[in-house]
Structures are given as structure tokens and as C-alpha cells.
Design a protein around this nucleic acid. Sequence first.
DNA 1: GTCTATAGCGCGATAGAC
DNA 2: GTCTATCGCGCTATAGAC
Lengths: 194, 194
Amino acid sequence: MPDNTRDKLLDAAQDLVQRVGANAMSYQHLAEAVGIRKASIHYHFPTKTDLLGTLIERYHKAFMERVSAVRSGGGDGGVRLRAYLDLFSATLRDSDGDKLCACGMLGAEVATLGADAAAALHRFYAANHRVLETLLREGVADGSLAVPGDVAATARVVLAALEGGMLVARTGDQPAERFAQVAQQLLLLVTPRG
Amino acid sequence: MPDNTRDKLLDAAQDLVQRVGANAMSYQHLAEAVGIRKASIHYHFPTKTDLLGTLIERYHKAFMERVSAVRSGGGDGGVRLRAYLDLFSATLRDSDGDKLCACGMLGAEVATLGADAAAALHRFYAANHRVLETLLREGVADGSLAVPGDVAATARVVLAALEGGMLVARTGDQPAERFAQVAQQLLLLVTPRG
DNA sequence: GTCTATAGCGCGATAGAC
DNA sequence: GTCTATCGCGCTATAGAC
């Protein structure tokens, strides 16, 4: 629980972005969540674009810290890929299926975001693509994974399936379970076949 | 080009939903696109929810007609799966990378949609899941595809990768080409390995 | 079916007191 | 840093004339 208003605002904004999106999130909602008046928000973030840009960068940084834990965790490539997929599963699981990846939501809304926020989004995806490509390559090297064709292209498929899997899962019943099934099958698709 | 106002409104609404989302689409935008005053829209669609519900159902129906063409087209399972994937590629390609699948966009915004629209969305995804499952099963039967584990789960992965692939591709350069690469690699992942 | 006019509200943002 | 007050705008939706 953060004690400074700025972090509380970012927390509330992230929660709302993940649930309803940036376009459905207002300063009024943030003010109510944090317990200050909406005009006060402008002291911390002059414009909504400033807030969203900061939000994406904070989300990116926090996500990459969890990715670092996965990468330095034990196991072969397959085990670590599974741990990476679990980072995404956790979002749906911890929110009763109500939350998307913040960058997945903002990706849908990218046409209404400022140029800075859009560039920050692009960096988030590029970084995750690099991580996935490395994880896949390591798994292929140690024999725990098998990837036909291009590894970089496969990394894009996995990232796409993770972001899209959350999105699709949320439109039905039991989103967390559905998504877990997608992640499980995704892993199976890059597992060596006997 | 439709000649009745109602269809023109649905066309304009679909275009805006795919580019910027339902929350960023207003009656004013629709009025300007169609060339009538915004109050006149309420004659055709009393509320925005009515418009979105109708839009999803029309999109669903039109998409399934194209799916029928794919299913009754020639070729083995692999060829027909590729033709199905091309239905998604076409959206990005025909819009210079500006448009998402309408239901992908609305899936992100599902928390701000009415219950009827959310249910219609669910039906769109359920129908496409069934189509994909059948295509995969036929491909496995004729030997053109190879799916490890559960076919239904694989169908979910493919659908997720298609929706997520469009979303992620749009945040970078050359979205159409990026998405085509994802679709291509997705196909390779369910192709029998020599 | 489409229009003008308007109600009623929520939005992001600013000014200036404290 | 947070407040009150307010601006100007855009939104969905309605009423009633034509």
C-alpha cells in the first residue's frame, strides 16, 4: 500500500485501465478511489496523457522485474517459459477474471492515445518479444522445447496468444480457467513431440 | 454502398469501432460520417447499446458468411485453415493496419458494454471456436495438420493468437506484415513435422 | 425520417485561495 | 498539495416541428 498520493493515483488508474480501459476511466473515478478532489490530480499529472505514459512505463518496469525473477529462476527452458506464461495467468486469476493486461487494453485503445503513450506501449511489446525469443531459444538449446521454423516468429505467436487469450477469455464464463487452458496448450505446441 | 441510412450508420459505426473503439465513438462522429444530424440517429437506434448490439450481430453474420465460403472452398484442412486465417489478415491489410477485428476491440471494452452486447460478443467467439475446432479436426483427419493434445484447446489458442496478433501488430510498424507473419507461424505450429 | 433546440450530465483542465 | 469554483466542451438522449 503506497503512502504517497502519486502512487495511489497510478494504482487506481492501472486498476481502472485494466478493467474498463483508458477511455472509460475519468479523473472523477480516480479522485473517488484515492480520496482527493479531481482537480488535485492535475498537480501530479497535468494531463491524462501524462498519467497514461507514466502508467505504461511503471507497468513495463514492474513487469520486467517479475520477468527477471522468472529468468533467474531454476529449471529448463520449458519450466521457465511456463513461469513466464504464469505471469499473465496471474492477472486474470487475481482479479476474478476482470482484468486484462494493462498494455493489452491500451493496445486496443492505441488510436486514442498520445504519441508518447503509444511509443511506450510499443517498447513494452518489443521487450516482451525479446524475452520470449530468448526463452524459446534457450528451451530449444536444452531440448525442453521444439520450435518449427523461425523462433522470433514463434515468440510473436506466443505473445499474441497471451494478450488475445486474456481478451477472449474475459468475454465468457470462468475467464481465469479458460486462459489457463490456452497457456497450457500454448506450451504443448512448443513441446517436443514423441 | 448501402442506400438506406440504417446500413450507412452501421457501416460508419463499425469502421469507428474497429479503429478507435466503442467508447471513443460518438453520435456526432456517426452523424458527420453519414451526413445527417446526430439526433436523427436515435430514430434508427434509440440508444448506443442498441446500435452496438445490432452491430455485433451483423458483423457476426457477415463474418460467418465468409467462413462458409472458406469451409465450402476446396483444399485439405491445412489449406482451409489458412483461408480462415486470411479472413483476419484481410482486416489489417485492407485498412493499412488501422483496424482491429470489431469483436476484438469490443472484447477489450466488454466491461463498459450492456449485457445484450456482451452476450452477442460471447456468441461470436463461441461460433468461431466451433469453426476452428472443426477445421483443425478435419485437417488432422486428412493428415494435413498435426495437433498435440486437445483439439478444442488448440482452437482456443489459434483464436487467441488471431485476436491478440492484430492488437499487438497495430502498436508497431507495418502491422499487416507483422500479423501475416503471426498467422503464417501459427499455421506452421499445427503442421505435421517431418 | 429528418430536422432544430435543448436538457442534463460528465469530461479534462485552469485559476486562485489556503 | 489540496481545496473550491468554474470554464467550455462533448456526450447521450428527448421533445416537438416539419
